[in-house]
Amino acid sequence: MTDLLYVAALVILANVAVSAWRVLHGPARADRIMGAQLIGTSGVALLVLLYLIHGSSGVLDLALLLALLAAFAAVGYVKSRSADGAGDPEVAGGEDP
């Protein structure tokens, strides 16, 4: 099974590469941070696969940490986009879609 797990890890790594392309090319700012989100999700999956390969449950703590950091990165990005840097994107108002 270990060989199959390594193949799976390679597929996930290919996802990371594609996400990195989105981070570089956008076009919207939100696209770039979404690419970073996908790198986070892929990284968590990669760590879970590494846990299966090596059987060390400390890797799962890393997976939790990465999931947490990816979420906070996105929240930080959204907050930085509002005028006072504190907010809720809803308060900004704007045009109807």
Binding site: Q37, V78, P97
Partner: peptide
């Protein structure tokens, strides 16, 4: 995060 990013992208136009 999906709701936050969806809103933020909307406000960005």
């Amino acid at each position: 995060v999906a709701q936050l990013l969806a809103r933020s992208a909307l406000e960005d136009g």
